[in-house]
Design a protein around this nucleic acid. Structure first.
Length: 265
DNA sequence: ATGGTGGAGCATCCA
C-alpha cells in the first residue's frame, strides 16, 4: 500500500449527466478517494458499475428519491463507514474512517438568494447547519485526525471571490456566513489544506456560474469547495490541485474537482 | 438594476 493518499472532492451537479466529464477526469487522474456532492440520483439509479470499471471497489452513496442533494464516498479499497451526524436529515453528509483518520463529506445548503434570515428560511437553515457542524466538531478531541471536505457553499476569504465588495450581499460571501464558517474552522483547529499552497493575496476559485456568456473570460469565480484537515495532519498535506480544466468539458459541472495529496506516516 | 443557465422531471423547485 502506498504511503500517500489522494483525496478529491467534486460537486458534480448530477452524476448521471456528468459521466463523460468524470471519465475524462479519471483517465487523467485517479484519486484513492473521490467525494461527490449533488449526485441528484436515488441509490437504485446510481451508476455503480461506471466507478467499478475505474477500479473503485468501495462505493458508499446516499441519494434522495426527489433528485435533490446526494453524496458519495468512492474509494479503491474498502473503508469503514462511521455513523452520520445526527442533525443532518437530507443526503448532505457521509463519513468513513481510513487508517486513523475520520473523513467527512459535506454538502452544506446553498441558502437561497435573499441574505436575510427573517425573509428567507433557506438562509436560516444554512446558518443553522454550519452552527450545528461547529457544535458537533467542538465535541471531538483536539488531537483527533479529521478531514472535512466538500461543497461548503461559502467563499471565506476576500480572494476566494472575484470581487469582495460586490459579493458582500451575495449569499456565499456575506459577513455572517464567513463568521459562521470561521467558527467552524476554529471549532477543532482546522487548517485549509488548499490555501496552504496559494497565498491569501491570490485569487482562487472552484466554481464558475453557468450564467456567464464566457465563464473563462469573465472569470467571476468563487471558492466554494474545501478540504480542511485538523492541525496535526496539516504537515502531511504535500500538494493541492484545482482541476480547472473540467469546467471546459462539453457538459460541465459548475464546480471543478479539488484534490490534496496526503502523506501517511 | 437586471437577467443571465443548468438539472430533476413534468410543475416547479433548487442551485
Amino acid at each position: 500500500m502506498s504511503n500517500k493518499i489522494e483525496i478529491t472532492t467534486w460537486n458534480v451537479n448530477s452524476v448521471r449527466k456528468r459521466l463523460n466529464s468524470i471519465s475524462i477526469f479519471l483517465k487523467d487522474f485517479i484519486p484513492d478517494i473521490l467525494l461527490l456532492q449533488e449526485t441528484k440520483v436515488s441509490n437504485e439509479l446510481f451508476p455503480y458499475q461506471f466507478f467499478k470499471d475505474f477500479g473503485y471497489h468501495f462505493i458508499h452513496h446516499e441519494g434522495e428519491k426527489t433528485g435533490y442533494n446526494g453524496v458519495a464516498i468512492i474509494a479503491k479499497s474498502e473503508l469503514e463507514v462511521i455513523p452520520k451526524i445526527e442533525f443532518i436529515n437530507d443526503a448532505r453528509h457521509l463519513a468513513v474512517k481510513i487508517n486513523n483518520i475520520e473523513l467527512h463529506n459535506f454538502y452544506i445548503p446553498a441558502g437561497g438568494d435573499i441574505p436575510d434570515v427573517t425573509m428567507n428560511d433557506k438562509f436560516k437553515d444554512k446558518l443553522n447547519f454550519i452552527d450545528n457542524m461547529t457544535k458537533w466538531f467542538q465535541g471531538k478531541k483536539p488531537n483527533d485526525n479529521i478531514i472535512i471536505a466538500g461543497d461548503f457553499n461559502v467563499a471565506p476569504l476576500e480572494n476566494d471571490v472575484w470581487s469582495h465588495k460586490q459579493l458582500l450581499k451575495i449569499i456565499s460571501h456575506t459577513p455572517v456566513e464567513v463568521e459562521k464558517l470561521s467558527n467552524l474552522y476554529n471549532s477543532l483547529n482546522f487548517r485549509d489544506s488548499v490555501r496552504k499552497f496559494t497565498d491569501d493575496s491570490e485569487k482562487l476559485y472552484s466554481w464558475w456560474s453557468y450564467r456567464a456568456r464566457d465563464w473563462k473570460k469573465s472569470n467571476r469565480g468563487r471558492r466554494l469547495d474545501h478540504i480542511w484537515t485538523t492541525a496535526n495532519l496539516y504537515h502531511n498535506v504535500e500538494k493541492a490541485n484545482i482541476f480547472k480544466s473540467t469546467r471546459d468539458h462539453e457538459v460541465p459541472s459548475d464546480h471543478v474537482p479539488i484534490s490534496i495529496t496526503l502523506s501517511l506516516g
